[in-house]
């Protein structure tokens, strides 16, 4: 006995098929472990399936299900840690404007060819994944929502229930940290032109 009709089910199944790898990938970046990522996606889809009849605009499914995932992650986090996390060192110190482009785009490197493209080509998937996962959570959430899911600043602010100015500053800090981490990894892997020592400055 099911109250959810067949056309709705067909719609849900095809959307899940289309989005499952992205939901799982996002959950992995947020939870940083496979078992938790699986639980998060399963819980998200269970909620989405039950609430689906309430969703008026089917075009909005993707962002809607993604918000359920983010909210699920946040409330799970709150349950696990009674006290809010200490503000991390990365939050309070260091420059706010690390730019990978400025590091790579140096006049003395340019006569070699195209160092920017070279760096982009050589960065491994794992390097990028771990750079995202290294971000402190408040920055990681904003980067994931905007950069991985293409949410607007307003949608991100709304989902996280924070002011849009906070979204802007966390995004900018998050990107800067992310690019710094990529630069460091590129240096360690010996693929960063002009950064043989893996110096993040």
């Amino acid at each position: 006995m099911t109250s959810i009709g067949t056309p709705l089910r067909a719609f849900f199944e095809s959307e899940v098929e289309r989005l499952l790898d992205r939901l799982y990938g996002t959950a992995l970046r947020l939870t940083r472990n496979r078992a938790d990522a699986e639980d998060l996606v399963a819980d998200t889809l269970a909620k989405a399936w039950v609430k689906l009849p309430e969703l008026r605009d089917r075009q909005a499914f993707e962002k809607w299900v993604f918000r359920i995932l983010v909210n699920g992650f946040i409330s799970e986090r709150r349950k696990r840690q009674a006290r809010p996390r200490e503000v991390t060192a990365a939050t309070t110190c260091g420059e706010d404007t690390f730019s990978l482009f400025e590091k790579v785009h140096q006049p003395f490197l340019l006569w070699w060819g195209n160092p920017e493209q070279e760096l982009l080509d050589k960065l491994l998937r794992e390097d990028i994944e771990s750079a995202v996962e290294e971000l402190p959570e408040e920055f990681r959430l904003v980067v994931v929502m905007i950069e991985l899911w293409g949410l607007s600043y307003a949608e991100t602010a709304n989902t996280l229930d924070i002011p849009i100015g906070t979204v802007r500053s966390r995004l900018s800090r998050g990107r800067s940290l992310l690019q710094g981490a990529l630069w460091r990894q590129a240096g360690e892997a010996g693929i960063a032109p002009g950064n043989a020592k893996g110096d993040a400055r």
Binding site: E13, D21, E38, R125, L148
Partner: peptide, 26 residues
């Protein structure tokens, strides 16, 4: 281009165990 590379990190092949759970949910 960097952003395109970073957005790849938002995708990972869902394991079969998860696919089974999703079918059960539905």
């Amino acid at each position: 281009k960097l952003r395109a590379r970073v957005s790849e990190a938002g995708k990972a092949k869902a394991p079969e165990s998860l696919r089974r759970r999703v079918r059960t949910i539905i």
